[in-house]
Design a protein around this nucleic acid. Structure first.
Lengths: 226, 226
DNA sequence: CATAAAACAAGAGCACTGCTCTCGTTTTGT
DNA sequence: ACAAAACGAGAGCAGTGCTCTTGTTTTATG
Protein backbone atom coordinates (compact mmCIF):
# COMPACT_ATOMS: atom_id res chain seq x y z
CA UNK A 1 0.00 0.00 0.00
CA UNK A 2 1.18 3.53 -0.69
CA UNK A 3 2.47 5.56 2.22
CA UNK A 4 0.05 7.96 3.83
CA UNK A 5 -2.74 5.41 3.88
CA UNK A 6 -2.61 5.05 7.63
CA UNK A 7 -2.75 8.79 8.27
CA UNK A 8 -5.68 9.15 5.87
CA UNK A 9 -7.51 6.24 7.45
CA UNK A 10 -6.94 7.68 10.86
CA UNK A 11 -8.41 11.01 9.87
CA UNK A 12 -11.36 9.34 8.18
CA UNK A 13 -12.11 7.05 11.09
CA UNK A 14 -11.82 9.90 13.57
CA UNK A 15 -14.41 11.78 11.59
CA UNK A 16 -16.62 8.70 11.30
CA UNK A 17 -16.53 8.16 15.06
CA UNK A 18 -17.35 11.79 15.63
CA UNK A 19 -20.20 11.62 13.15
CA UNK A 20 -21.70 8.56 14.78
CA UNK A 21 -21.31 10.17 18.20
CA UNK A 22 -22.96 13.30 16.86
CA UNK A 23 -26.00 11.33 15.73
CA UNK A 24 -26.22 9.60 19.09
CA UNK A 25 -25.91 12.90 20.92
CA UNK A 26 -28.73 14.41 18.93
CA UNK A 27 -30.98 11.41 19.41
CA UNK A 28 -30.43 10.26 22.97
CA UNK A 29 -28.39 12.97 24.63
CA UNK A 30 -24.96 13.17 26.21
CA UNK A 31 -25.78 11.03 29.27
CA UNK A 32 -26.81 8.04 27.18
CA UNK A 33 -23.99 8.28 24.66
CA UNK A 34 -22.27 4.90 24.47
CA UNK A 35 -18.82 4.16 23.12
CA UNK A 36 -19.79 0.56 22.49
CA UNK A 37 -22.81 1.63 20.46
CA UNK A 38 -20.57 3.81 18.30
CA UNK A 39 -18.31 0.81 17.77
CA UNK A 40 -21.29 -1.31 16.72
CA UNK A 41 -22.45 1.40 14.31
CA UNK A 42 -19.04 1.44 12.69
CA UNK A 43 -18.65 -2.34 12.91
CA UNK A 44 -15.43 -2.22 14.80
CA UNK A 45 -14.30 -3.47 18.19
CA UNK A 46 -15.12 -1.12 21.04
CA UNK A 47 -11.51 -1.18 22.13
CA UNK A 48 -10.47 0.22 18.75
CA UNK A 49 -12.41 3.41 19.39
CA UNK A 50 -10.01 4.16 22.21
CA UNK A 51 -7.17 4.44 19.73
CA UNK A 52 -8.85 7.57 18.40
CA UNK A 53 -10.41 9.06 21.53
CA UNK A 54 -8.73 8.17 24.81
CA UNK A 55 -11.97 8.24 26.76
CA UNK A 56 -15.68 8.89 26.58
CA UNK A 57 -15.00 12.30 28.11
CA UNK A 58 -12.62 13.20 25.31
CA UNK A 59 -15.33 12.31 22.83
CA UNK A 60 -17.81 14.49 24.70
CA UNK A 61 -15.30 17.32 24.65
CA UNK A 62 -15.04 17.09 20.88
CA UNK A 63 -18.83 17.13 20.64
CA UNK A 64 -18.92 20.07 23.03
CA UNK A 65 -16.62 22.11 20.82
CA UNK A 66 -18.66 21.13 17.77
CA UNK A 67 -21.86 22.25 19.49
CA UNK A 68 -20.40 25.56 20.61
CA UNK A 69 -19.19 26.24 17.11
CA UNK A 70 -22.49 25.28 15.55
CA UNK A 71 -24.36 27.52 17.96
CA UNK A 72 -21.87 30.31 17.43
CA UNK A 73 -22.26 30.07 13.67
CA UNK A 74 -26.05 30.10 13.98
CA UNK A 75 -26.03 33.18 16.18
CA UNK A 76 -23.56 34.96 13.93
CA UNK A 77 -25.77 34.27 10.94
CA UNK A 78 -28.83 35.39 12.87
CA UNK A 79 -27.16 38.66 13.65
CA UNK A 80 -25.94 39.12 10.10
CA UNK A 81 -29.49 39.13 8.72
CA UNK A 82 -30.29 42.34 10.61
CA UNK A 83 -30.13 45.64 8.81
CA UNK A 84 -29.87 47.88 11.85
CA UNK A 85 -28.55 47.27 15.33
CA UNK A 86 -31.92 46.31 16.76
CA UNK A 87 -32.49 43.71 14.06
CA UNK A 88 -29.02 42.34 14.57
CA UNK A 89 -29.81 41.87 18.25
CA UNK A 90 -33.24 40.31 17.79
CA UNK A 91 -31.89 38.18 14.96
CA UNK A 92 -29.12 36.85 17.15
CA UNK A 93 -31.49 36.22 20.05
CA UNK A 94 -33.99 34.33 17.93
CA UNK A 95 -31.16 32.35 16.38
CA UNK A 96 -29.99 31.35 19.85
CA UNK A 97 -33.42 30.13 20.88
CA UNK A 98 -34.06 28.50 17.51
CA UNK A 99 -30.81 26.56 17.66
CA UNK A 100 -31.53 25.43 21.21
CA UNK A 101 -34.98 24.17 20.24
CA UNK A 102 -33.60 22.39 17.19
CA UNK A 103 -30.72 20.87 19.16
CA UNK A 104 -31.97 20.34 22.72
CA UNK A 105 -29.39 17.71 23.63
CA UNK A 106 -26.57 19.78 22.23
CA UNK A 107 -27.84 22.76 24.21
CA UNK A 108 -27.99 20.61 27.33
CA UNK A 109 -24.39 19.57 26.71
CA UNK A 110 -23.20 23.15 26.34
CA UNK A 111 -25.34 25.09 28.80
CA UNK A 112 -26.89 22.42 31.01
CA UNK A 113 -25.34 21.00 34.11
CA UNK A 114 -21.81 19.82 33.40
CA UNK A 115 -21.01 16.20 34.17
CA UNK A 116 -19.47 15.89 37.63
CA UNK A 117 -15.76 16.45 37.70
CA UNK A 118 -15.67 17.54 34.11
CA UNK A 119 -13.52 20.58 33.53
CA UNK A 120 -13.86 22.08 30.09
CA UNK A 121 -10.43 22.06 28.46
CA UNK A 122 -8.88 25.19 27.06
CA UNK A 123 -9.75 24.24 23.49
CA UNK A 124 -13.44 24.83 24.20
CA UNK A 125 -13.28 28.44 25.30
CA UNK A 126 -12.63 29.89 21.86
CA UNK A 127 -15.77 28.27 20.51
CA UNK A 128 -17.77 29.03 23.64
CA UNK A 129 -16.97 32.72 23.33
CA UNK A 130 -18.56 33.24 19.92
CA UNK A 131 -22.09 33.92 21.17
CA UNK A 132 -20.91 36.44 23.73
CA UNK A 133 -18.74 38.05 21.05
CA UNK A 134 -21.76 38.67 18.84
CA UNK A 135 -23.72 40.22 21.68
CA UNK A 136 -20.87 42.41 22.87
CA UNK A 137 -20.12 43.62 19.34
CA UNK A 138 -23.70 44.82 18.99
CA UNK A 139 -23.58 46.65 22.31
CA UNK A 140 -20.25 48.20 21.38
CA UNK A 141 -21.63 49.41 18.06
CA UNK A 142 -24.58 50.95 19.88
CA UNK A 143 -22.18 52.74 22.20
CA UNK A 144 -20.05 53.95 19.30
CA UNK A 145 -23.12 55.29 17.55
CA UNK A 146 -23.87 57.25 20.70
CA UNK A 147 -27.34 55.77 21.24
CA UNK A 148 -28.72 56.44 24.71
CA UNK A 149 -29.35 53.37 26.86
CA UNK A 150 -32.78 52.66 28.27
CA UNK A 151 -33.76 54.80 31.21
CA UNK A 152 -32.83 53.73 34.70
CA UNK A 153 -29.44 52.18 34.05
CA UNK A 154 -27.52 52.17 37.31
CA UNK A 155 -24.12 53.48 38.24
CA UNK A 156 -21.22 51.06 38.73
CA UNK A 157 -19.33 50.58 41.93
CA UNK A 158 -15.56 50.52 41.62
CA UNK A 159 -15.57 46.89 42.68
CA UNK A 160 -18.03 45.99 39.97
CA UNK A 161 -15.94 47.80 37.37
CA UNK A 162 -12.93 45.61 38.09
CA UNK A 163 -15.12 42.52 38.47
CA UNK A 164 -16.41 42.72 34.91
CA UNK A 165 -13.38 44.38 33.34
CA UNK A 166 -12.69 41.34 31.10
CA UNK A 167 -16.15 41.84 29.61
CA UNK A 168 -15.79 45.58 29.11
CA UNK A 169 -12.38 45.14 27.53
CA UNK A 170 -13.42 42.23 25.32
CA UNK A 171 -14.36 44.63 22.51
CA UNK A 172 -12.59 47.60 21.02
CA UNK A 173 -13.31 50.30 22.01
CA UNK A 174 -14.11 49.02 25.48
CA UNK A 175 -17.63 49.27 26.83
CA UNK A 176 -18.41 51.95 29.37
CA UNK A 177 -19.95 51.03 32.70
CA UNK A 178 -23.57 51.47 31.73
CA UNK A 179 -23.29 49.49 28.50
CA UNK A 180 -21.41 46.74 30.29
CA UNK A 181 -24.09 46.56 32.97
CA UNK A 182 -26.92 46.25 30.48
CA UNK A 183 -25.01 43.75 28.35
CA UNK A 184 -24.48 41.49 31.35
CA UNK A 185 -28.15 41.53 32.25
CA UNK A 186 -29.08 40.77 28.65
CA UNK A 187 -26.64 37.86 28.56
CA UNK A 188 -28.09 36.29 31.70
CA UNK A 189 -31.67 36.92 30.61
CA UNK A 190 -31.28 35.32 27.19
CA UNK A 191 -29.74 32.11 28.47
CA UNK A 192 -32.03 32.12 31.48
CA UNK A 193 -35.10 32.24 29.30
CA UNK A 194 -33.91 29.57 26.88
CA UNK A 195 -32.84 27.25 29.71
CA UNK A 196 -36.05 27.69 31.66
CA UNK A 197 -38.10 27.05 28.54
CA UNK A 198 -36.09 24.11 27.28
CA UNK A 199 -35.76 22.41 30.63
CA UNK A 200 -39.49 22.55 31.25
CA UNK A 201 -39.72 25.19 33.96
CA UNK A 202 -42.21 27.29 32.02
CA UNK A 203 -44.69 24.45 31.63
CA UNK A 204 -48.19 25.56 32.59
CA UNK A 205 -46.81 29.04 33.20
CA UNK A 206 -46.17 30.37 29.70
CA UNK A 207 -48.56 29.22 27.01
CA UNK A 208 -46.82 30.66 23.94
CA UNK A 209 -43.06 30.48 24.28
CA UNK A 210 -42.15 32.22 21.05
CA UNK A 211 -44.50 35.11 21.65
CA UNK A 212 -43.16 35.54 25.14
CA UNK A 213 -39.54 35.29 24.05
CA UNK A 214 -40.18 37.94 21.44
CA UNK A 215 -41.64 40.22 24.07
CA UNK A 216 -38.66 39.70 26.32
CA UNK A 217 -36.05 40.45 23.69
CA UNK A 218 -37.91 43.55 22.56
CA UNK A 219 -37.77 44.72 26.16
CA UNK A 220 -34.07 43.91 26.28
CA UNK A 221 -33.50 45.78 23.03
CA UNK A 222 -35.21 48.80 24.56
CA UNK A 223 -33.05 48.52 27.67
CA UNK A 224 -29.98 48.43 25.43
CA UNK A 225 -31.20 51.53 23.62
CA UNK A 226 -31.30 49.75 20.27
CA UNK B 1 -43.68 -8.91 67.48
CA UNK B 2 -46.37 -6.30 68.06
CA UNK B 3 -48.47 -5.22 65.08
CA UNK B 4 -47.42 -2.05 63.33
CA UNK B 5 -43.77 -3.04 63.38
CA UNK B 6 -43.68 -3.58 59.64
CA UNK B 7 -45.24 -0.22 58.80
CA UNK B 8 -42.86 1.56 61.14
CA UNK B 9 -39.86 -0.24 59.71
CA UNK B 10 -40.97 0.59 56.20
CA UNK B 11 -41.23 4.27 57.01
CA UNK B 12 -37.87 4.26 58.75
CA UNK B 13 -36.09 2.41 55.96
CA UNK B 14 -37.63 4.66 53.33
CA UNK B 15 -36.21 7.64 55.18
CA UNK B 16 -32.84 5.94 55.61
CA UNK B 17 -32.62 5.23 51.89
CA UNK B 18 -33.56 8.80 51.12
CA UNK B 19 -30.99 10.09 53.59
CA UNK B 20 -28.22 7.99 52.08
CA UNK B 21 -29.25 9.06 48.59
CA UNK B 22 -29.25 12.67 49.73
CA UNK B 23 -25.68 12.39 50.94
CA UNK B 24 -24.63 10.76 47.67
CA UNK B 25 -26.39 13.45 45.67
CA UNK B 26 -24.62 16.22 47.56
CA UNK B 27 -21.23 14.56 47.21
CA UNK B 28 -21.13 13.11 43.72
CA UNK B 29 -24.18 14.48 41.94
CA UNK B 30 -27.28 12.97 40.36
CA UNK B 31 -25.52 11.29 37.45
CA UNK B 32 -23.26 9.23 39.68
CA UNK B 33 -25.90 8.29 42.23
CA UNK B 34 -25.85 4.51 42.60
CA UNK B 35 -28.61 2.32 44.02
CA UNK B 36 -26.09 -0.38 44.83
CA UNK B 37 -23.95 2.07 46.77
CA UNK B 38 -26.96 3.08 48.84
CA UNK B 39 -27.59 -0.60 49.55
CA UNK B 40 -23.99 -1.03 50.67
CA UNK B 41 -24.26 2.03 52.93
CA UNK B 42 -27.33 0.56 54.59
CA UNK B 43 -25.93 -2.96 54.57
CA UNK B 44 -28.80 -4.46 52.69
CA UNK B 45 -29.18 -6.27 49.39
CA UNK B 46 -29.49 -3.97 46.40
CA UNK B 47 -32.66 -5.73 45.34
CA UNK B 48 -34.28 -4.81 48.67
CA UNK B 49 -34.03 -1.11 47.85
CA UNK B 50 -36.47 -1.68 45.01
CA UNK B 51 -39.16 -2.61 47.55
CA UNK B 52 -39.11 1.01 48.65
CA UNK B 53 -38.38 2.86 45.43
CA UNK B 54 -39.41 1.15 42.22
CA UNK B 55 -36.52 2.59 40.23
CA UNK B 56 -33.55 4.89 40.34
CA UNK B 57 -35.70 7.51 38.64
CA UNK B 58 -38.27 7.36 41.44
CA UNK B 59 -35.47 7.95 43.91
CA UNK B 60 -34.26 10.93 41.91
CA UNK B 61 -37.79 12.29 41.83
CA UNK B 62 -37.96 12.16 45.62
CA UNK B 63 -34.62 13.96 45.80
CA UNK B 64 -35.87 16.49 43.25
CA UNK B 65 -38.88 17.35 45.39
CA UNK B 66 -36.65 17.57 48.46
CA UNK B 67 -34.31 19.94 46.64
CA UNK B 68 -37.12 22.15 45.35
CA UNK B 69 -38.56 22.38 48.84
CA UNK B 70 -35.20 23.13 50.39
CA UNK B 71 -34.55 25.86 47.85
CA UNK B 72 -38.07 27.22 48.28
CA UNK B 73 -37.65 27.38 52.03
CA UNK B 74 -34.28 29.14 51.67
CA UNK B 75 -35.70 31.75 49.29
CA UNK B 76 -38.76 32.30 51.48
CA UNK B 77 -36.49 32.86 54.48
CA UNK B 78 -34.28 35.17 52.46
CA UNK B 79 -37.29 37.24 51.51
CA UNK B 80 -38.63 37.28 55.06
CA UNK B 81 -35.51 39.00 56.37
CA UNK B 82 -36.26 42.09 54.30
CA UNK B 83 -37.95 45.06 55.94
CA UNK B 84 -39.19 46.75 52.77
CA UNK B 85 -40.02 45.41 49.34
CA UNK B 86 -36.58 46.04 47.93
CA UNK B 87 -34.90 44.17 50.77
CA UNK B 88 -37.32 41.31 50.38
CA UNK B 89 -36.34 41.06 46.71
CA UNK B 90 -32.61 41.30 47.21
CA UNK B 91 -32.85 38.93 50.17
CA UNK B 92 -34.67 36.36 48.08
CA UNK B 93 -32.24 36.75 45.20
CA UNK B 94 -29.18 36.34 47.39
CA UNK B 95 -30.79 33.37 49.08
CA UNK B 96 -31.31 31.76 45.68
CA UNK B 97 -27.69 32.22 44.67
CA UNK B 98 -26.44 31.25 48.12
CA UNK B 99 -28.41 28.02 48.10
CA UNK B 100 -27.20 27.16 44.62
CA UNK B 101 -23.57 27.71 45.60
CA UNK B 102 -24.01 25.65 48.76
CA UNK B 103 -25.81 22.86 46.92
CA UNK B 104 -24.43 22.77 43.39
CA UNK B 105 -25.48 19.20 42.65
CA UNK B 106 -28.96 19.80 43.97
CA UNK B 107 -29.19 22.92 41.82
CA UNK B 108 -28.03 20.92 38.82
CA UNK B 109 -30.73 18.38 39.54
CA UNK B 110 -33.45 21.01 39.73
CA UNK B 111 -32.41 23.57 37.17
CA UNK B 112 -29.77 21.81 35.08
CA UNK B 113 -30.45 19.67 32.08
CA UNK B 114 -33.04 17.03 32.89
CA UNK B 115 -32.09 13.42 32.27
CA UNK B 116 -33.29 12.29 28.83
CA UNK B 117 -36.84 11.08 28.80
CA UNK B 118 -37.43 12.16 32.35
CA UNK B 119 -40.76 13.91 32.81
CA UNK B 120 -41.18 15.54 36.19
CA UNK B 121 -44.23 14.00 37.86
CA UNK B 122 -47.06 16.14 39.10
CA UNK B 123 -45.89 15.89 42.70
CA UNK B 124 -42.90 18.07 41.91
CA UNK B 125 -44.70 21.15 40.63
CA UNK B 126 -46.00 22.30 44.00
CA UNK B 127 -42.48 22.39 45.39
CA UNK B 128 -41.02 23.81 42.21
CA UNK B 129 -43.44 26.73 42.31
CA UNK B 130 -42.33 28.11 45.65
CA UNK B 131 -39.49 30.28 44.33
CA UNK B 132 -41.67 31.83 41.66
CA UNK B 133 -44.37 32.40 44.26
CA UNK B 134 -42.01 34.47 46.39
CA UNK B 135 -40.95 36.59 43.44
CA UNK B 136 -44.47 37.16 42.17
CA UNK B 137 -45.75 38.07 45.64
CA UNK B 138 -43.13 40.80 45.88
CA UNK B 139 -44.04 42.18 42.47
CA UNK B 140 -47.72 42.06 43.36
CA UNK B 141 -47.10 43.94 46.59
CA UNK B 142 -45.19 46.58 44.65
CA UNK B 143 -48.10 46.91 42.28
CA UNK B 144 -50.61 47.16 45.14
CA UNK B 145 -48.50 49.87 46.77
CA UNK B 146 -48.70 51.75 43.52
CA UNK B 147 -44.97 52.05 43.00
CA UNK B 148 -44.00 53.09 39.50
CA UNK B 149 -41.99 50.58 37.47
CA UNK B 150 -38.60 51.46 36.06
CA UNK B 151 -38.72 53.62 33.00
CA UNK B 152 -38.97 52.08 29.58
CA UNK B 153 -41.26 49.16 30.35
CA UNK B 154 -42.91 48.09 27.12
CA UNK B 155 -46.52 47.61 26.17
CA UNK B 156 -47.96 44.10 25.88
CA UNK B 157 -49.38 42.63 22.73
CA UNK B 158 -52.69 40.85 23.09
CA UNK B 159 -51.00 37.58 22.23
CA UNK B 160 -48.43 38.08 24.94
CA UNK B 161 -51.13 38.85 27.47
CA UNK B 162 -52.79 35.48 26.92
CA UNK B 163 -49.42 33.75 26.67
CA UNK B 164 -48.41 34.72 30.18
CA UNK B 165 -51.89 34.86 31.72
CA UNK B 166 -51.12 31.98 34.11
CA UNK B 167 -48.31 34.09 35.53
CA UNK B 168 -50.37 37.26 35.85
CA UNK B 169 -53.20 35.37 37.50
CA UNK B 170 -50.96 33.41 39.84
CA UNK B 171 -51.26 36.11 42.51
CA UNK B 172 -54.25 37.99 43.88
CA UNK B 173 -54.86 40.66 42.73
CA UNK B 174 -53.50 39.71 39.32
CA UNK B 175 -50.47 41.50 37.90
CA UNK B 176 -50.99 44.08 35.20
CA UNK B 177 -49.15 43.81 31.89
CA UNK B 178 -46.17 45.92 32.79
CA UNK B 179 -45.55 44.22 36.12
CA UNK B 180 -45.91 40.82 34.51
CA UNK B 181 -43.43 41.75 31.82
CA UNK B 182 -40.80 42.93 34.30
CA UNK B 183 -41.36 39.96 36.57
CA UNK B 184 -40.74 37.53 33.71
CA UNK B 185 -37.49 39.25 32.76
CA UNK B 186 -36.37 39.19 36.38
CA UNK B 187 -37.18 35.49 36.66
CA UNK B 188 -35.15 34.61 33.60
CA UNK B 189 -32.27 36.88 34.60
CA UNK B 190 -31.92 35.47 38.11
CA UNK B 191 -31.77 31.85 37.03
CA UNK B 192 -29.72 32.76 34.00
CA UNK B 193 -27.06 34.40 36.12
CA UNK B 194 -26.94 31.62 38.70
CA UNK B 195 -26.76 28.93 36.03
CA UNK B 196 -24.10 30.71 34.01
CA UNK B 197 -22.01 31.24 37.12
CA UNK B 198 -22.47 27.77 38.58
CA UNK B 199 -21.92 25.93 35.32
CA UNK B 200 -18.68 27.78 34.65
CA UNK B 201 -19.65 30.05 31.79
CA UNK B 202 -18.46 33.17 33.57
CA UNK B 203 -14.94 31.84 34.09
CA UNK B 204 -12.34 34.39 33.04
CA UNK B 205 -15.16 36.81 32.25
CA UNK B 206 -16.40 37.86 35.66
CA UNK B 207 -13.78 38.10 38.39
CA UNK B 208 -16.04 38.73 41.38
CA UNK B 209 -19.28 36.82 41.11
CA UNK B 210 -20.92 38.11 44.27
CA UNK B 211 -20.17 41.72 43.47
CA UNK B 212 -21.52 41.31 39.98
CA UNK B 213 -24.61 39.46 41.13
CA UNK B 214 -25.32 42.24 43.60
CA UNK B 215 -25.04 44.80 40.83
CA UNK B 216 -27.41 42.82 38.64
CA UNK B 217 -30.11 42.42 41.26
CA UNK B 218 -29.91 46.09 42.19
CA UNK B 219 -30.52 46.86 38.54
CA UNK B 220 -33.44 44.42 38.51
CA UNK B 221 -34.85 45.98 41.67
CA UNK B 222 -34.71 49.35 39.95
CA UNK B 223 -36.46 47.95 36.90
CA UNK B 224 -39.16 46.56 39.18
CA UNK B 225 -39.54 49.95 40.81
CA UNK B 226 -38.67 48.59 44.25
C1' DC C 1 -55.89 -19.76 67.54
C1' DA C 2 -54.65 -21.67 63.03
C1' DT C 3 -53.97 -20.70 58.37
C1' DA C 4 -53.78 -18.37 54.10
C1' DA C 5 -52.01 -14.10 52.09
C1' DA C 6 -49.16 -10.57 51.68
C1' DA C 7 -44.72 -8.29 52.42
C1' DC C 8 -40.06 -8.85 52.87
C1' DA C 9 -34.78 -9.79 52.54
C1' DA C 10 -31.23 -11.97 50.14
C1' DG C 11 -28.85 -13.84 46.38
C1' DA C 12 -28.15 -15.21 41.70
C1' DG C 13 -28.32 -13.67 37.23
C1' DC C 14 -29.01 -10.75 32.85
C1' DA C 15 -27.72 -7.19 29.84
C1' DC C 16 -25.26 -3.32 29.68
C1' DT C 17 -21.44 0.15 30.50
C1' DG C 18 -16.28 2.30 30.31
C1' DC C 19 -11.98 0.80 30.04
C1' DT C 20 -7.54 -2.20 30.01
C1' DC C 21 -4.57 -5.78 28.46
C1' DT C 22 -2.81 -9.05 25.39
C1' DC C 23 -1.87 -10.88 20.99
C1' DG C 24 -1.27 -11.23 16.32
C1' DT C 25 -1.13 -8.19 12.05
C1' DT C 26 -0.11 -4.27 9.22
C1' DT C 27 2.01 -0.07 8.10
C1' DT C 28 5.74 3.03 8.94
C1' DG C 29 10.51 5.07 9.07
C1' DT C 30 15.40 3.93 9.05
C1' DA D 1 15.44 -5.60 5.13
C1' DC D 2 14.18 -4.91 9.59
C1' DA D 3 12.95 -2.92 13.90
C1' DA D 4 9.45 0.15 15.71
C1' DA D 5 5.34 1.96 15.96
C1' DA D 6 0.42 1.82 15.14
C1' DC D 7 -3.47 -0.90 14.72
C1' DG D 8 -7.72 -4.22 15.13
C1' DA D 9 -9.91 -7.67 17.59
C1' DG D 10 -11.08 -10.26 21.52
C1' DA D 11 -11.16 -11.46 26.29
C1' DG D 12 -11.74 -9.79 30.67
C1' DC D 13 -12.57 -6.67 34.86
C1' DA D 14 -15.38 -3.96 37.77
C1' DG D 15 -19.22 -1.60 37.88
C1' DT D 16 -24.34 -0.42 36.86
C1' DG D 17 -29.95 -0.88 36.94
C1' DC D 18 -33.07 -4.17 37.36
C1' DT D 19 -35.61 -8.89 37.60
C1' DC D 20 -36.59 -13.38 39.29
C1' DT D 21 -36.58 -17.01 42.54
C1' DT D 22 -36.38 -18.86 47.19
C1' DG D 23 -37.13 -18.95 51.79
C1' DT D 24 -38.69 -16.27 55.83
C1' DT D 25 -41.48 -13.13 58.54
C1' DT D 26 -45.32 -10.35 59.51
C1' DT D 27 -50.06 -9.40 58.58
C1' DA D 28 -55.01 -10.22 58.05
C1' DT D 29 -58.84 -13.60 57.99
C1' DG D 30 -61.89 -17.71 58.99
Amino acid sequence: MPPGTRAANRSELTQAILASASVQLAEIGPAALSVRQIARDLEMASSAVYRYFPSRDALLTALLIQAFDDLGRAVEEGAATGADLRDRFTGAAHALRGWALAHPHEYALTYGSPVPGYAAPTETVASATRVAAVLLAIVRDAQVEGRPLGAGTRQFSAAERTAVAPISDFVEPALDDAHTARAMVVWATLFGHVSLELFGHMNNAVLDYKEHFTTVIEQLADDLGL
